[in-house]
Design a protein around this nucleic acid. Structure first.
Lengths: 128, 128
DNA sequence: GGGAGACTTCTACATGACGTAGAAATGATT
DNA sequence: AATCATTTCTACGTCATGTAGAAGTCTCCC
């Protein structure tokens, strides 16, 4: 239900980054960040997009329920509905639920988790 | 990298089912199963597809690395590269890896897992 | 109040994935 | 060799996505 294209993904990343940084997250902010992140690692690199392009994507993300926009303020404020972590965790659940035998999947999943992660999990599941 | 369409998904399900049942998993087998599963629960229901349609999908799945086919035997034998559980677990890892802070994601993930699943996880992670 | 510029909405097009399948090629069977 | 099964090629419609121009709407300043 929620697969994102490269640009959509990139925009979500911008939003998430802005969330953490408690930015206004107005269209202009996003564009600024996007161009500034030019030299970044992976992702949707360079060639600054047209304003409308980003707007279109934001609208689509809104339709998909991933983004919410405040229409009250004039330059609308955009923000992701859930944090990157929540979103990702949800996706994981979605995937997990796509198989009939969830327990079996979990077994495989745990099997290839890093040691650190395993440790984290133990803590999280801590006896109770 | 690996999102499947409805039909592709349905075909994978057939393959997986065949795997468990240790069927020959030849095109004919798949078609048979598919029509028989007509009344099934969800998925790609009814209206038996053209033989070529399924073949096309199988080829695409092969290209995607999800299906392997034995070209030696005459009616080719098709089989999934990994079990449904492995495949699903891999997907989960893929998703998990898509976020920078994996630990945080795991935290959220664990937070919304059923009790039974949590129990399973504890067992799987049991002191080593 | 009216104009300029910022911001948003509409509309549109290209590309690629996927569902769907006919036509043609290839292999098996008698 | 003729026939039938199986596979490969080719093709088309639809939908998601990247991309953006044109036009409409708001704000702000003079």
């Amino acid at each position: 239900m929620a697969s994102l294209g490269d640009l959509e993904r990139a925009v979500m990343d911008l939003l998430w980054a802005g969330q953490e940084a408690a930015t206004a997250n107005t269209l202009r902010d996003l564009l600024a960040k996007s161009t500034r992140a030019e030299g970044g690692s992976a992702g949707h690199e360079g060639k600054d997009l047209a304003v409308t392009t980003v707007l279109t994507v934001l609208s689509r993300l809104e339709r998909k329920g991933l983004v919410e926009r405040e229409r009250g303020t004039r330059p609308h404020r955009y923000q992701s509905v859930s944090s990157r972590e929540e979103h990702t965790a949800e996706l994981m659940h979605e995937v997990l639920g796509s198989a009939p035998d969830r327990e079996a999947v979990l077994a495989r999943f745990i099997g290839s988790v890093t040691d650190t992660e395993a440790e984290t999990l133990r803590k999280l599941l801590g006896r109770n």
